[in-house]
Design a protein around this nucleic acid. Structure first.
Lengths: 143, 143
DNA sequence: CTCTTTTTTTAGAACCACTCTAATTTCTTG
DNA sequence: CAAGAAATTAGAGTGGTTCTAAAAAAAGAG
């Protein structure tokens, strides 16, 4: 945690700016979720876990809104969707270029900074297709 | 398709051998699914699509058995699970070392032979964890 | 500030892929 | 063939996610 957010005179300012830049109306729910997501170190959340955090923090927000918001944030590139596990969707607050360790045992995810992975040769995408992203997932198991 | 399988004197022989090697009893359902899966070029199936193929081919098999069988085959390394899309599980009949193009538009998957991807430096797995596999997914969009 | 319009939120139902259960059928072995 | 073990099955159940239609909140106009 860098510093506690001011709650008296300029509350939500950071989150507010983000929402504005993304062209999303700063509703109470979006602001609260943005604060939970971005005023903390990078991490991976699912809709359920974020909803749980909101409840714990005393934020009244429905699960449907959490889903909507996560998708809007992803659309706006404030979040990135990580697919490692069919049946549960994770969202990464780290939208910089990077990859993941995935612990197959318990489903933990762990970032690998982009610089730490050097991709050698990659094939050309087929005719008429453009690369939108390259995901590297290093699946590991505890020994 | 290489050649139609003989149905008269030595039916299912290839599939039969595979099942035996894997230590799986050669039941009617498993044989039929093995034939559908392995007597054709490599491809990616979901439980639903394979079940559909079985129905079309006139094979009476329940969806539950298709799921069971896909998992048993994966366990026996006759298939490999590919995770590209949360919400649907794909199984790859190609179990050699390789990676994938994923067409984000329509969900198509396309193999990239292992030799065509040279991975440069990868980070060490964290202490107490061993790499079980490295997945590279090149996400592409039609232009 | 109020009225109107547009957007957002919401509870709950619906959905979909998948798993489980318990009963039946099929294999294997003696 | 009989007995025991293993596999299959229909149908119910589950869990994550999306949809729906109605209520609430935000933005814009006057």
């Amino acid at each position: 945690m860098t510093q506690p957010a001011p709650t008296s005179n300029r509350p939500y300012s950071d989150a507010l700016a983000r929402l504005r830049r993304a062209g999303l109306r700063p509703t109470r729910q979006r602001l609260a979720l943005a604060r939970l997501l971005f005023e903390a170190p990078h991490r991976h959340v699912s809709a359920e876990t974020l909803h749980g955090e909101a409840m714990t923090a005393g934020v009244r927000v429905s699960l449907a809104t959490v889903y909507n918001t996560l998708h809007q944030f992803t659309e706006a590139k404030l979040l990135r969707e990580v697919v490692v596990d069919s049946g549960r969707t994770y969202f990464d607050t780290n939208v910089t270029d990077h990859h993941h360790f995935f612990y197959e045992d318990n489903g933990d995810l762990c970032d690998i900074p982009g610089e730490q992975v050097r991709l050698g040769d990659l094939p050309q995408p087929p005719e008429g297709a453009a690369v939108s992203r390259v995901d590297v997932i290093i699946r590991v198991r505890r020994t």
